[in-house]
Every structure is written in C-alpha cells, then in structure tokens.
C-alpha cells in the first residue's frame, strides 16, 4: 500500500491560522470628550477598519476566491457581523465579564450600559461563556469563522453548489481537526457548530441596533460600515 497521503484538509486549518489578520486597535479620539456618542463613534470606526481586513481575510479562505464575485459579496454581506462578533468573543476569552472590542478598547458591564450596548454585552458574553466552557482553541476559532462565512444563508447565492462545496470543505476540515486532536470527545465538532445559532442571533441583534443608531444620525459612520449595514436590512 502507498503511504497515506497527508490530507489537504488539515492544511486548511493551518492555512486559516496563517491567514489570521493582525490585531487592529480602536484608538479612541483623545480630543473628544467621553460620552456614549464617542464610544459608539469609536466602535463604528473600528468596525469599518475591521471590515476592510475581513474582506482581505476572506480571499485567503481556500475556495472563496473561486466563487463568483456576486456570491463572494453575498456571503460577506450576510456574515460580516457574525465574523466581527466571533473575533470579539475570541479576544474576550482570557477576560472575566469584559468584552475586548480591541486590545485598547475593553468594555465592562457598566461601560456597555452607559453606551446603550447592554443587551449586546449580555448576548456576546453568553457566547464567550459557551466557548470558555468548551476551551475553544485558535484552530477551531479560525475554522468556525470561515464556516460562519460560508454558511451565512444568504438568499442571493447564484451558485449554491459551489458554496456547498466550500461549506463541505470547511466542515470536513473541522471534523478532521477534531478527530485528530480531540479523540476524547467525538461530539466536539457538533458542539462547536451548535454555537452558531446563538452567534447568528447575536449578530442579528447587533445589526438592528447599529442600524437604528444610523437612522438616528448622531454617530458618524464610514462608508463601508454603512454599506454593509444597509445590505443587511
């Protein structure tokens, strides 16, 4: 028998680890007086810059760039908030009851309340607790992020077969990773995938909240963030 060839799927996880973007910082404007508007302005600016990074990151997901441009757009328009939130969740894992929007922008319950983000804080923390309990690893987190993108249930997909292929490849990568690294828990891949409905629910809430902030018109928002918000509603 020929020696077993190294599965390209384990390669997907290592590839996703390499494709992981550098940290970006919130850098709140030091000249602006502290207020809820300042906090929301900082977060919207951070999200806008993160979106640029997410779009670049998506291109490195094996198979993503071979989708039609329209399908790439549809997946990103559906999943961007889930990807943003998953990143916040992962950064917040080492912390206790605090959300790490960026390493220089960490919000506790009180700060979230003052900013009108208490509901979101509670939902995101529920996700943080789930992943803490699972002791989710970076390999799993990067794979879940890619799965959230591929599985975003956009209603505008042109080539569902190609998107299904991407989902299958990423799903298989997660399963292969779990069966080699977590033999002690044969249901671990399933447990991880079962966190995705709460992620979807939280992202939906977040989009609605930021959309209503946009409608109120008090918080300046950059064009890409606005464009992505509008694509969701």
């Amino acid at each position: 028998l020929p020696p077993p060839t190294k599965k390209p799927l384990t390669k997907i996880v290592s590839h996703l680890l390499v494709a992981e973007p550098e940290k970006i910082y919130a850098m709140p404007d030091p000249t602006m007086p502290e207020s809820d508007i300042k906090a929301l302005t900082t977060l919207c600016d951070l999200a806008d810059r993160e979106l640029v990074v997410i779009i670049g990151w998506a291109k490195h997901i094996p198979g993503f760039s071979t989708l039609s441009l329209g399908d790439q757009m549809s997946l990103l328009q559906s999943a961007w908030m889930e990807i943003l939130i998953l990143s916040i969740v992962f950064r917040s894992l080492p912390y206790e009851d605090e959300l790490v929007y960026a390493e220089d922008y960490i919000m506790d319950e009180e700060h979230s309340r003052l900013t009108g983000l208490l509901d979101l804080y509670v939902s995101i923390l529920q996700l943080v607790r789930k992943y803490k309990k699972l002791k989710v690893e970076k390999e799993e987190f990067v794979t879940l992020k890619a799965i959230a993108l591929a599985n975003s249930d956009s209603m505008h997909i042109e080539d569902m077969e190609a998107v299904q292929k991407l989902q299958d490849a990423l799903h298989e990568a997660l399963q292969d990773y779990e069966s080699s690294q977590h033999q002690e828990d044969p249901r671990r891949a399933g447990k991880l995938l079962m966190t995705l409905p709460l992620l979807r629910q939280t992202a939906t809430k977040a989009v609605q909240h930021f959309y209503s902030i946009k409608v109120q018109g008090k918080v300046p928002m950059h064009k890409l963030f606005l464009e992505m918000l509008e694509a969701k509603v």
Binding site: K11, I12, A19, I55, K59, M73, K223
Partner: peptide
Amino acid sequence: KEKHKILHQLLQNSTSPVDL
C-alpha cells in the same frame, strides 16, 4: 452592484490568494 461599491472594489483589488 453600484449600491455596494466599496465591497465590490475591495474584493476586486488584487491580492493573490495563496493556493493550497
């Protein structure tokens, strides 16, 4: 597509996705 100009542009920008 016109409505989603920036996303469209950023996706079209040349980065060479690494092939596996």
